Amino acid sequence: MNQELNNPRGPAKRLAVYNHKGGVGKTTLTVNLASAIAALGHNVLLVDSDPQCNLTSYLIEDSVVNDLLDQSDSDEGQTIWSALKPVVEATGLPRSIPPIAVSQNLSLIPGDVRLAEFEAELTSFWGDCFQRKLRGFRGTSALSSVVSAAVEQTGAT
C-alpha cells in the first residue's frame, strides 16, 4: 500500500533547522537551503516557528512584517500565531493561513513574536497527552496541521 495515502502530513519532505544558541547561522542556512531547493524546481514552504521572526524579517519588507504582527491577534491575522491561537486559547482547532509567496517556488508562513505563548503551553500539552486528553493531542499536533494545510495550498514537495 502507498505509504503517502496513510500519512496525514502529506508527501512533502520536512526539514527542521534548530539550535538553541543564537547567532549560529540558522536563518542564513535555512534561506540558502530553501533557495537552492526552489532553484531546482521544487515548491518550498518555509515556516518561521521562531518567536524572534528572523526568517520572516529576512524575507519580507519591514512595513509588511509590522502589518502582519499588528493584525496577528485578530480574526484576520495571517501569521503562525494567528493559526495556532485557537488551540492555545482552547477555543478551537488551528486555522489555515495563506502562505506568502516570496519568490518563484518559495513561500513562507510568517513568524510572530506571540508564538512564545504557544511554546509556553507545549509542556502542558505534552502532560495532557500523557493523560490522554484531547487538548494535549490537538496542541502537540497543531503546528504540523498548519504546515500540512499550507503544503496543500502551495504544492510544496
Score class of each variant (00 low, 15 high):
residue 20 H to E: 13
residue 20 H to V: 11
residue 21 K to H: 10
residue 22 G to D: 10
residue 22 G to T: 09
residue 22 G to I: 11
residue 25 G to Y: 10
residue 25 G to W: 10
residue 26 K to N: 04
residue 26 K to Q: 03
residue 28 T to H: 12
residue 28 T to F: 09
residue 29 L to Y: 10
residue 30 T to F: 03
residue 30 T to E: 00
residue 30 T to M: 00
residue 30 T to K: 06
residue 30 T to R: 01
residue 30 T to I: 09
residue 31 V to W: 09
residue 31 V to E: 08
residue 32 N to A: 08
residue 32 N to I: 05
residue 33 L to V: 11
residue 33 L to P: 02
residue 33 L to S: 03
residue 35 S to F: 09
residue 36 A to Y: 07
residue 36 A to M: 05
residue 37 I to S: 00
residue 37 I to C: 01
residue 37 I to A: 09
residue 37 I to M: 09
residue 38 A to G: 07
residue 38 A to M: 03
residue 39 A to N: 13
residue 39 A to G: 15
residue 40 L to F: 07
residue 40 L to I: 02
residue 40 L to G: 10
residue 40 L to V: 04
residue 41 G to K: 11
residue 41 G to A: 08
residue 42 H to N: 13
residue 44 V to N: 03
residue 45 L to D: 06
residue 46 L to P: 03
residue 46 L to V: 02
residue 46 L to I: 05
residue 46 L to W: 03
residue 47 V to C: 13
residue 47 V to W: 03
residue 47 V to F: 03
residue 47 V to K: 01
residue 48 D to Y: 09
residue 48 D to N: 03
residue 49 S to V: 00
residue 49 S to E: 02
residue 50 D to C: 02
residue 51 P to K: 02
residue 53 C to M: 15
residue 53 C to H: 01
residue 54 N to G: 14
residue 54 N to M: 06
residue 54 N to Q: 14
residue 55 L to P: 03
residue 55 L to V: 05
residue 58 Y to W: 10
residue 58 Y to N: 10
residue 58 Y to D: 11
residue 59 L to S: 06
residue 59 L to D: 01
residue 59 L to E: 04
residue 60 I to L: 15
residue 60 I to Y: 00
residue 61 E to V: 01
residue 62 D to C: 00
residue 63 S to V: 12
residue 63 S to D: 15
residue 64 V to L: 14
residue 64 V to Y: 13
residue 65 V to W: 08
residue 65 V to T: 08
residue 65 V to G: 04
residue 66 N to Q: 15
residue 66 N to L: 13
residue 67 D to K: 13
residue 67 D to R: 14
residue 67 D to S: 13
residue 69 L to E: 15
residue 69 L to H: 10
residue 70 D to C: 03
residue 70 D to W: 01
residue 70 D to Q: 12
residue 71 Q to V: 01
residue 73 D to R: 14
residue 73 D to N: 14
residue 73 D to L: 06
residue 73 D to F: 00
residue 74 S to K: 14
residue 76 E to H: 05
residue 76 E to S: 11
residue 77 G to N: 08
residue 77 G to T: 08
residue 77 G to R: 04
residue 77 G to M: 10
residue 77 G to H: 09
residue 78 Q to S: 13
residue 78 Q to V: 00
residue 78 Q to T: 05
residue 78 Q to L: 14
residue 79 T to M: 09
residue 79 T to W: 06
residue 79 T to K: 08
residue 79 T to E: 12
residue 80 I to W: 03
residue 80 I to N: 08
residue 80 I to R: 00
